[in-house]
């Protein structure tokens, strides 16, 4: 029997877009973690640096919305004593840490769901799948960031929020649409494929599982994004602010 040679990083970067099946088969046979992780790490840092103007725009947006809504600059309350640069560097290093934690938790959830559905995947395979999914999305984000920067946007133009022009960060629906980016939808498809390949169950089961997990994830992300404004709303209504 001929032993297939594991794909190298460059092959994966290309094939993850053009032949995701092959990448997923590779994950199944030799689930790699470290190299894709370093790739994602470097790409995320690079993207964060590139997106610095977008982060500033986001902060300006928060300032504007909070001033308009409550008469208080949320940014001046939360960022007391921190300069723009300090905030940027803090987010630069906190994002990778947060991302890693998110991967570990996502992998555990995937493993639990897979086991419930009697899948055959291992934790390592699923963690590798999650990291490769991140590889896909981070690469996409890096590619489209210049377009976002050119458009002078505070958030990516490739989210469904672009279809809700009147919305802003204070709205849960807007936040929900914001997290539903084209990359994340692409990632769901990739993850669905990965689940049925790694667990060796039907395509339908794989996609439905991926979609359910995605719905949970975007609801959580949209809720977290809206949380600050919800809290400010409560304080404002009670006259504390």
């Amino acid at each position: 029997m001929q032993v297939k040679k594991p794909m190298n990083l460059f092959q994966k970067i290309i094939k993850i877009f053009v032949a995701p099946n092959e990448v997923l088969q590779d994950i199944k046979e030799s689930p790699r973690i470290l190299i894709p992780f370093f790739y994602v790490f470097v790409i995320t840092i690079l993207t964060t640096i590139l997106q610095k103007p977008m982060i500033e725009l986001q902060q300006q947006e928060i300032s504007y919305l909070s001033l308009e809504r409550y008469g208080v600059d949320m940014l001046s309350l939360s960022g007391k004593g921190l300069t723009n640069n300090q905030s940027f560097w803090i987010s630069l290093f906190s994002i990778p840490v947060g991302v890693w934690l998110g991967w570990l938790i996502s992998s555990v959830i995937l493993l639990m769901v897979s086991k419930i559905l009697k899948g055959k995947s291992t934790y390592k395979q699923l963690l590798s799948l999650v990291i490769h999914t991140a590889m896909l999305t981070s690469t996409l984000v890096l590619i489209v960031t210049p377009i976002d920067l050119f458009l002078g946007r505070s958030s990516t133009v490739f989210s469904l929020a672009v279809l809700y022009p009147g919305g802003n960060m204070t709205s849960f629906v807007y936040n929900l649409l914001s997290v539903m980016t084209l990359f994340s939808i692409w990632a769901v498809i990739f993850q669905g494929m990965g689940l049925y390949i790694l667990n060796e169950f039907s395509k339908k089961k794989g996609y439905i599982t991926a979609i359910f997990l995605y719905i949970g994830k975007i609801l959580f992300a949209a809720g977290a994004a809206s949380m600050t404004f919800w809290m400010f709303d409560i304080l404002y209504k009670q006259g504390i602010m």
Binding site: Q60, S63, P165
Partner: peptide
């Protein structure tokens, strides 16, 4: 769509580009 929305929003606000919102 993003390009069209961006132009409309800026026109509505009639404020300098990249300006910080302040009270």
């Amino acid at each position: 769509i993003g390009w069209l929305n961006r132009t409309r929003v800026d026109n509505e606000r009639n404020v300098p580009k990249n300006a910080v919102s302040v009270q």
